[in-house]
Amino acid sequence: MSEPLLDVEGLYKAYGQHLVLRNVNLAVDRHEVVSLIGASGCGKSTLLRCINLLEEINAGQILLNGEPISAASPNADRVRQRIGLVFQSYNLFPHMSVLDNITLAPRKVRGEGRAASEGEARKLLARFGLADKADEFPDRLSGGQQQRVAIVRALALKPDLLLLDEVTSALDPEMVGEVLDIIRELKNVGMTMMLATHQMAFSRQISDRVAFLDAGRIVEIGPPEQIFDAPEQERTRHFLERVLSTAP
């Protein structure tokens, strides 16, 4: 058994006096899809932001390919190139065309030429049904299209790991499907992903493992059948009862 792609060990994260993550331990293998579920404020997003090194952690460590990445080091920028993060609110750059949004990092961070990176970007856009949007500006796109562009932007750096932070939460219901389809396709091609989500049905369908977080701890982690059909923990059962009883 080779080492996991991502290994989170004893992670603690606090904002001021408020402890948001407590002793989080989690390993993600290559080509694995792990989803994080739990009530708002349970620490899902914070965990993803910590893994992307957007937040400094207070204790513990994070390893990528066995290499510790969480210690303060000037290589954080290099690590982030290997870990893509897609945000709930898309966060596209409004002053750039779709093509420039996607090629900015390959050109400025990787030093790729404009022609090469734009060729790659157009190929990716075509694959996700966005070929005709390359020269549009973000505010001309629907929410679903913007989020798909945001995913393409993260993929342009060919990351080892893709983090998706509630990527459908800000979307109108009829646009959720097109974004979930992309995530399904990425699973099919073997992309390693961690996603924080409120979409229980989708999480069950796409995940190899599901982690339930409550008050900053991973309460229970296991295959979707275990978490959704036979949760071992009382708190997991309670959460799912509440969520599924109000689900459409």
């Binding site: 992307n52 957007l54 920028d77 290099r78 982030r80 190139q81 893509g84 993060l85 945000f87 609110s89 966060n91 596209l92 750059f93 900015l104 990092a105 400025k108 961070v109 932007r153 993260a154 750096l157």
Partner: peptide, 15 residues
């Protein structure tokens, strides 16, 4: 969030 998005793509603070 704009800065966060840029940093998440590996851009340095100055970039």
């Amino acid at each position: 969030s704009q800065r966060a998005a840029a940093r998440s793509l590996g851009l340095s603070n100055m970039q």
